[in-house]
Nucleic acid binder design. Structure first.
Length: 279
DNA sequence: AACAAGACCTGCATGC
DNA sequence: TGCATGCAGGTCTTGT
């Protein structure tokens, strides 16, 4: 489900109810998700105060007052849902429950592609899940020249390469298509050909689309909800994603003549684009 | 080294 | 109604 804007939205929602609060109890309802929970997972969190909740790429990072960091990933279908304290009616796919005096937070994930694990703040950046991540796209250090350097020598299609979290961290299948549309670049172009002004345009497009999506609370297709239960609204602003055959919002060509937005499959995943406007 | 394909899961829409 | 198929916001491993 969640790409950078959805995870950012989830982290902001969780911060409001968890930051500064003590987690009294952690209920673990199965032994593993995508990966096993580490030994003592619940006990190592219970009784600790939450110092901060932040995001890196598509990972949620919950820092505790003893230097422990809970790393969470929502996979395709994960959600964090805030409810009243001491909630005793749970869904089949509620795998972890964090309890404070004021609220309960459930990690729900039907497909179980998500994960939760523990590390320590002082070795966080070396954790295998985080060590090889590329730059945060919304950081000032993510620039046209920096992206061009990361794409140098990459012969794969631009769309597929941008999904590689080592190139840039946080893009997923929706926002890659949307950013390429805004930048006027074909998803099929060899990644290494994006240099100079094209790289500048692409970086601008990535920053813009992600920022706008965060402001809209992310995109709700199937699974994403903010922790409060509110939906995201950015799906109403998609130019190309899941719009096969519909008119391209950028050119006034007749979709019955041009076919409108095209859907192709790259590396086994759908890509949407306007062949006329994206080169 | 780079890339594609398969694997991991459940749920939902579609078509017979 | 039931059943089979294909598809879904992600990553990790395997094989060429």
């Amino acid at each position: 489900m969640p790409e950078l804007p959805e995870v950012e939205t989830v982290c902001r929602g969780l911060a409001r109810v968890l930051e500064g609060r003590v987690i009294d109890r952690v209920v673990l309802r199965r032994a593993d998700l995508r990966t096993p929970f580490p030994p003592g997972f619940a006990d190592r969190i219970a009784g600790r105060r939450v110092v901060s909740i932040r995001r890196r790429a598509k990972f949620m990072l919950m820092a505790l007052d003893d230097g422990t960091v809970v790393i969470g990933h929502l996979g395709m279908s994960g959600r964090m849902v805030i409810g009243p304290p001491r909630l005793n009616v749970l869904d089949r796919h509620d795998h972890v429950v964090f309890e404070t005096a004021e609220a309960s937070v459930r990690f729900n994930d039907p497909r179980r592609f998500g994960l939760m694990t523990l590390t320590a703040e002082d070795v966080l950046s070396e954790h295998p899940l985080l060590a090889r991540l590329g730059p945060e796209p919304l950081d000032d250090s993510f620039t046209g020249p920096a992206l061009a350097a990361a794409l140098r020598g990459k012969n794969g299609p631009l769309k597929t390469v941008l999904l590689d979290q080592r190139v840039v961290a946080g893009l997923g299948n929706i926002y890659v298509s949307e950013a390429l549309f805004r930048a006027g670049l074909s998803p099929r172009r060899a990644a290494r050909t994006v240099t100079g002004g094209r790289a500048d345009r692409l970086v601008r497009a990535i920053k813009d689309v992600l920022s706008e999506a965060i402001a809209a609370g992310g995109s709700t297709l199937r699974d994403h909800v903010q922790p409060t239960g509110e939906l995201g609204y950015f799906q109403h602003r998609f130019a190309v994603y899941d719009r096969e055959g519909q008119p391209c919002p950028g050119c006034d060509c007749d979709p019955s003549a041009t076919g409108g937005i095209r859907r192709i499959v790259q590396a086994g995943r759908s890509t949407f684009f306007c062949p006329k406007r994206q080169r």
